[in-house]
Nucleic acid binder design. Structure first.
Length: 564
RNA sequence: GUACCCGUAGCUCAGCUGGAUAGAGCGCUUGGCUACGGACCAAGAGGUCGGGAGUUCGAAUCUCUCCGGGUACGCCA
């Protein structure tokens, strides 16, 4: 924790064997015992001392500067009581200087990220389960950009496949259909294929025709998938999600790159034609140790390719772009598939992207299924969220014009929806619940936004905020100190999130900071503080808080609002 | 059946590179509007951290095992 360099310095001077990283500073569990604590386990181990012995030795022998009031050992911990203002001045000044970059560790400077996410089948309006992929992928992108990465976001458009074929067959009049009606047509097409084998076979025939390059078929596929894609993108755009590249799967049929892979597989005798004339990879020959998932089919007997075969070509193309980090956001149902694909690529001497999995959003009744029409549509979810937000905004912001209230409601709705999903660790299933995911009170996005709106309100009233803490800077109240302790967690949180490719801790940070802020807000008058020095210091603390929180919210794709 | 993920207060979740009495929110019970915006704050009740065993000075956190939920397992994408 660089904020405590004044504590670390003298200790490092007294124990040259230690590195700064060995000194583990953290807020004391209670302010009664100290303002900040040193946990001595790591350092003591390095020095081959018992932690309590080390803590006592430091307390007794190391001489700290005048800003340190006392250092008292408590078992393996060393609790410091500080001249808070001195440290606070340092911290607030640092945050104000970094402003919109505060929290970034700059780990991506000069580096590139290529990320593929969402890649929904272009056949229906997206449901909230799919939205987890999109929001998660989008937030990861924002996280990496915040770290300085140059990011390219790819969306793989599965514009060819059995399901699209069936839809094309069934929805002959799709020119006149609305995007919403296509969902019904898609459900109907699948039901029909289940009941009518002849219809299902026509679907496969159509696919084969498509693959052979029949222009009329290709045009029909294009039209319907484009209409779906645009409809889906419109819904995703409401959540602030956008993409840089749309890669159509049909481009990767019989792609030249596939020969490279096939050759490598043949050389290892890992590819064969089975008794039903399918082209199959035996992953067992490549080091696959399990029986499940051992065989990977590339082509059907009629010569048409399967998704995985095309995906090999696509993945190689992505990897050829030379990004430093290649992420691939996938539902956990694709885990085995991604492992298979990775193994094949490795066997062919090709690099593979890094898969990032997330667990599904479930309904109380079980899994969502587009095919069975058992879904909560993202657009319905957003409509409901916006309606509820609008009601609240109308109550709260009577003085604002109509259009502005609408815009605010939309942002609050997005905040509620994104925050509810993103703050949960992605390896956990989420049971979708209308009430809790649309709540604006408690641990929610709108609560965090509200703290920002309050800060903005004070900033407007204050006028110009000095960019640097003054010489008479004073912050010593418990609530002020605890707020600062929350704010300095951001760089650590960001670093951990990048390492884990997990955005949830950032939501937790925003919540902690917002909660500490409201406590401070209730305990400490800012604009009417009892001295000018205090008034200035507090408004600067508010400005620093706004930076930290809005940077965190930005990564989650949520705007800090001026008013709400 | 096999592999992977998850199992922490009534509910939804943090905490998991082992470390000071396990933290929030919702709901419940109280109290706070002379509000720098009550989408708020303060206080209280509520937990065998799924069960068991092990490693350790120390385990919600690591290992094993059992139970429960999720996901997947050769012509869907």
């Amino acid at each position: 924790m660089t904020a405590f360099a004044a504590l670390a310095g003298p200790i490092l001077a007294a124990y040259p064997a230690l590195d700064p990283a060995d000194l583990d500073f953290a807020p004391s569990p209670k302010l009664e015992v100290g303002d900040v604590a040193l946990r001595t386990f790591v350092a003591a181990k390095k020095l081959k001392m018992a932690p309590p012995q080390f803590a006592a030795a430091v307390a007794k022998e190391v001489r700290f500067g005048p800003a340190v009031v006392s250092a008292s050992p408590a078992g393996p911990y060393l609790n410091f009581r500080l001249n808070r203002s001195v440290f606070a001045r340092e911290i607030v000044g640092g945050i104000l200087r970094e402003g919109p970059r505060y929290g970034s560790t700059g780990s991506g400077t000069g580096r590139k990220l290529l990320i593929e996410h969402t890649s929904i089948n272009p056949n229906a309006s997206p449901h909230v389960g799919r939205a987890r992929n999109a929001m998660f992928g989008d937030s990861l992108t924002r996280l990496f950009r915040f770290e300085g990465f140059e990011a390219d976001v790819h969306y793989y458009v599965n514009d060819i496949g059995r399901q699209i074929g069936l839809l094309v067959l069934h929805a002959e009049n799709f020119d006149t259909m609305s995007f919403d009606e296509i969902l019904d047509a898609y459900v109907a097409a699948n039901t029909r294929a289940e009941q009518d084998p002849e219809f299902a076979k026509r679907g496969y025939d159509l696919l084969a025709k498509m693959e052979e390059g029949d222009p009329e078929t290709a045009a029909r596929f294009y039209k319907i998938t484009e209409k779906c894609l645009q409809g889906q993108l419109a819904v995703l755009a409401r959540l602030g999600i956008s993409y840089d590249h749309f890669d159509r799967e049909s481009k990767y049929l019989k792609h030249a790159r596939l020969e490279v892979v096939l050759e490598a597989l043949r050389a290892k005798e890992a590819v064969f034609t089975d008794e039903e004339e399918r082209l199959v990879v035996d992953l067992g020959k490549l080091g696959w140790e399990r029986e499940e998932g051992r065989f990977f089919v590339l082509m059907r007997a009629n010569g048409s390719s399967l998704y995985g075969f095309r995906d090999l070509a696509y993945t190689m193309e992505k990897m050829s772009k030379g990004a430093d980090v290649n992420l691939w956001v996938l539902g956990e149902d694709h885990k085995l598939y991604a492992e298979q694909l990775t193994l094949i690529l490795k066997a062919a001497g090709q690099p593979a992207p890094e898969p990032i999995y997330y667990a599904h959003i479930l309904l109380r009744e079980g899994r969502m299924s587009t095919r069975q029409g058992k879904v909560v549509l993202l657009s319905d979810f957003l409509d409901e969220a916006t309606a509820r937000a609008r009601q609240k905004v109308d109550e709260q912001c009577k003085d604002l014009p109509e259009a502005e209230r609408g815009a605010i409601a939309e942002k609050v709705a997005i905040s509620a929806v994104r925050f509810a999903i993103l703050r949960v660790n992605s390896n956990k299933n989420v049971i979708f619940d209308w009430e809790s995911s649309l709540s604006f009170a408690g641990d929610t996005g709108p609560y965090v936004q509200y703290s920002c709106a309050r800060i903005n309100s004070m900033l407007r009233k204050f006028g110009e905020i000095p960019g640097e803490p003054a010489a008479d800077f004073v912050l010593d109240h418990d609530a002020e100190w605890q707020l600062l302790m929350a704010l300095i967690e951001l760089p650590k949180t960001i670093a951990a999130s990048v390492a884990a490719r997990n955005v949830a801790p950032i939501g937790q940070f925003a919540l902690d900071a917002a909660r500490q802020f409201t406590t401070f807000y209730h305990d400490c008058p800012v604009l009417t503080a009892d001295s000018e020095a205090r008034r200035r210091a507090r408004i600067q603390l508010c400005a620093a808080t706004l930076s930290a929180i809005s940077n965190a919210l930005g990564i989650l794709g949520i705007d800090a609002l001026e008013r709400m």
